[in-house]
């Protein structure tokens, strides 16, 4: 890994911001250079939300991702439409196939279809669809370890949410299984 530039997008409430923060925090715990840049404004309140996460072995210049994303994780259709063209050639596109019927249009990126909501519902909580997606992403890139994500979860959410760790761990693993060939 030199520099991973990840766009995460979905509608408000799908947990794309927190998924991005966990990945960023995990990168920091592994002593990598990291940045997290959110979209902000009216779209935070119900519309499409997205964040740009950069995890790198080197110092990060601009935290902005334009058309050079190494990966896009899209949780809903508008996000696919908006960000498909921001992925650089050879990059990855993870599509939440539970909510997006459309297929990737580009053939120069590797598309993966993860039924994140269905998997989340299977393990008992639709709110961990984001963690399913993150699990799939980590399986594909090995950017940070699952242990680091769990460690980050503890730091971000504190002791009060520790009872949710098994569920989130399960979600990460099920996501990984979904893309394991």
């Amino acid at each position: 890994m030199a520099t991973e530039k990840i766009i995460m997008a979905g509608f408000g409430g799908q947990g794309v911001m927190s998924m991005g923060q966990l990945l960023t925090y995990s990168g920091m715990l592994e002593n990598k250079h990291v940045s997290w840049l959110p979209s902000y404004g009216p779209e935070m309140r119900g519309g499409t939300a997205n964040c740009s996460v950069i995890v790198s072995d080197n110092l990060i210049g601009s935290p902005i991702i334009t058309d050079d994303a190494t990966t896009a994780l899209v949780m809903n259709l508008p996000s696919l439409v908006k960000f498909e063209n921001n992925i650089k050639s050879g990059g990855k596109l993870l599509i939440n196939s539970s909510l997006i019927e459309k297929k990737a249009e580009r053939d120069d990126v590797d598309a993966y279809y993860v039924p994140a909501n269905e998997i989340a519902n299977e393990i008992g909580n639709s709110r961990v669809a984001n963690m399913v997606m993150l699990g799939a992403y980590l399986e594909l890139t090995k950017l940070v370890s699952v242990d680091s994500v769990i460690e980050a979860f503890k730091k971000v959410y504190g002791a009060g949410k520790e009872h949710l760790i098994p569920l989130n761990k399960d979600a990460l693993e099920r996501g990984a299984t979904a893309v394991r060939g």
């Binding site: 923060q21 960023t24 920091m28 990291v34 940045s35 997290w36 840049l37 959110p38 902000y40 935290p63 902005i64």
Partner: peptide
């Protein structure tokens, strides 16, 4: 600028 306010870094 707004990015400095909104972004996260270590």
């Amino acid at each position: 600028d707004g990015m400095i306010g909104q972004m996260m870094e270590p």
